[in-house]
Amino acid sequence: MIIDSHQHFWIYDPKRHDWIGDPIIQKDFTPEDLKKIYKENSVDGCVAVQADQTLGETDFLLDLASKNEFIKGVVGWIDLRTKNIDDTLQQYKDHKKLKGFRHIVQGEPDPNFLLRPEFTRGISKLETYDLCYDILVFPHQLGAVLEFVKQFPNQKFVIDHIAKPYIKDGFYDGWAILIKEIAKQENVFCKLSGMITEADFNTWTPTQITPYMELVLEAFGTSRLMYGSDWPVCLLAGSYSKVKDLVVNFVASLSDEEQQAIMGNNAIRFYNLK
């Protein structure tokens, strides 16, 4: 079974989605659009991930998931820093397709945002509800990530987009050192996603991206990597099939069991998908 562990839906709004600067993705992206693409690419299901930091976004994704069987799980957003975090988590505890939360930490000016007491207090509540946390950061924030994940050895974490290394500029070493350290924490997984948009949109090649994929494969192993498309953001640099083929071709030399793990089974296990 192939599970896309990372994709987005939105009804485009210029104010709410002001981070979307390219006309290619300045439009609506719905389950009907993705269903066709999945049929063409033999993808069985997905995890829908927040793109807007509101409770309305979480409710929007849960509503879509309730109406579309192929949306197996939702990674929503709540303000983990609020004093009434327990009340909010209780509010969502009966939503079976809610699998975790994410904050757009890459957009926070504070490099130590993840380590702030009000945020870590919220994170400390997630394990009780069997909820995962997606870590979205840039490479310069990985030092804080390392300290962060060490604080919560029993919390399930996943690094989105291999931590967005600066592939276009060829930067590698600093990112690689910290990724390897973070991967020593066995509760941390990593998504093979969002890579082509960190390279040059128009000139990237698999050869350019392969060293980064090799590093995370070495660091996390085949049991803690999962395929994700980052659709529709990926469309800035390539079609869905190009994104999928990039990962499929990379893992082709692995055993069938290892390929199946990365292409779907690890996501099923991490997010407890049904």
Score class of each variant (00 low, 15 high):
Ile20Asp: 02
Glu181Ser: 13
Pro206Val: 06
Ser241Gln: 15
Asp256Phe: 12
Lys184Phe: 09
Asp94His: 13
Ala267Trp: 01
Thr30Ile: 11
Leu235Asp: 00
Gln26Tyr: 04
Gln260Thr: 12
Cys234Thr: 10
Tyr271Cys: 07
Gln50Asn: 08
Phe101Arg: 04
Leu142Phe: 04
Arg16Ala: 15
His6Glu: 09
Val49Lys: 04
Leu215Phe: 08
Val248Ser: 10
Ser229Phe: 04
Thr82Phe: 06
Asp173Trp: 05
Asp79Phe: 09
Asn202Lys: 14
Val158Arg: 08
Phe189Thr: 03
Val247Gln: 05
Thr203Trp: 02
Thr210Glu: 12
Val188Ser: 10
Asp134Phe: 04
Leu98His: 05
Ser42Leu: 12
Ala163Gln: 05
Cys234Ile: 11
Phe119Met: 05
Ile2Asn: 10
Phe189Ser: 11
Pro109Tyr: 12
Ala176Ser: 11
Gly45Asp: 09
Gln7Arg: 11
Gly56Ile: 00
Ala183Gln: 04
Leu236Lys: 11
Glu214Pro: 01
Thr205Val: 12
Asn249Ser: 10
Met213Gln: 02
Thr222Ala: 09
Ala237Met: 08
Glu127Ile: 06
Ser42Ala: 15
Leu131Pro: 07
Thr222Tyr: 07
Gln151Asn: 11
Ser239Trp: 07
Pro211Lys: 08
Asp230Ile: 07
Ser229Ile: 06
Val247Ala: 06
Pro211Tyr: 11
Thr88His: 13
Lys72Asn: 07
Val105Ser: 11
Pro153Met: 00
Leu80Gly: 04
Gly170Thr: 08
Gln208Gly: 03
Leu254Ala: 02
Leu64Pro: 00
Val49Ser: 07
Gln208Tyr: 07
Ala183Asn: 03
Asp87Trp: 11
Leu192Ser: 09
Asn272Asp: 14
Thr210Gly: 00
Lys180Tyr: 10
Leu178Asn: 05
Ser255Pro: 03
Tyr166Arg: 13
Val247Phe: 02
Leu62Asn: 00
Ala219Glu: 04
Asp245Gly: 07
Phe29Trp: 14
Pro153Ser: 01
Lys180Asn: 08
Asn68His: 15
Ile196Gln: 00
Phe70Trp: 15
His17Phe: 12
His8Pro: 01
Asn272Leu: 10
Tyr92Arg: 06
Lys72Pro: 00
Asp130Gln: 14
Tyr92Asp: 10
Asn265Phe: 12
Phe157Pro: 04
Glu258Pro: 06
Trp19Glu: 09
Leu34Asn: 06
Pro117Trp: 00
Val49Arg: 03
Asn272His: 14
Gly170Gln: 10
Ser193Arg: 02
Glu198Tyr: 01
Lys180Ile: 07
Val47Ser: 02
Ile177Tyr: 14
Ile85Met: 00
Thr82Val: 15
Val216Ser: 09
Ala163Cys: 02
His8Thr: 09
Pro23Leu: 14
Ile104Ser: 10
Arg102Lys: 11
Gly21Ile: 15
Pro23Lys: 14
Lys83Gly: 11
Arg81Glu: 14
Tyr240Phe: 15
Ile24Glu: 13
Val233Phe: 05
